[in-house]
């Protein structure tokens, strides 16, 4: 009985993870500019991956395999923000202008930092 329950939960997790992975990838293609695409990619890197890994952990049971899956998950959660941040900063440095509906930086009394650090145009 409990084995059946675990199977059902793991099936649910894996299906949900697959759904979020595909949704993130669709966003990667649909979004209009670089910064909005990053948001779509981070859906894959967080919810899609963690649901798939939790589903696999439920199948594997307690043991070395589950521990390794936790390491893979921790790797995703530690390296994901680093890469995203580096990408955003490099793009701003190269003057890739984000598509903006509203720029609240000036309204909050701060000059946009990209202009103060970049080379004079």
């Amino acid at each position: 009985m409990s084995a059946l329950l675990i199977d059902a939960m793991s099936l649910l997790c894996i299906l949900a993870g697959s759904f979020f992975t595909i949704a993130g990838a669709i966003g990667l293609v649909r979004m209009p500019d670089l910064f909005t695409r990053m948001h779509a990619a981070s859906v894959i890197d967080t919810l899609g991956v963690s649901l798939l890994i939790v589903g696999m952990m439920l199948q594997a049971g307690a043991g070395l395999v589950s521990l390794k899956l936790i390491f893979v998950l921790a790797l995703f959660f530690l390296t994901g923000p680093v890469v995203t941040h580096a990408l955003a900063q490099a793009a701003l440095h190269e003057r890739v202008e984000p598509l903006l509906a509203e720029d609240r930086r000036a309204a909050r009394g701060q000059a946009p930092p990209a202009d103060s650090e970049g080379a004079p145009a």
Partner: peptide, 26 residues
Amino acid sequence: EIAKSAWAVTRVILNPRLPISPTMTT
């Protein structure tokens, strides 16, 4: 928090009108 906001972003992505309003702030 991640689960909640990932669901919100997924809804935006799958919405046919793509209702994004990108904002920069400090």
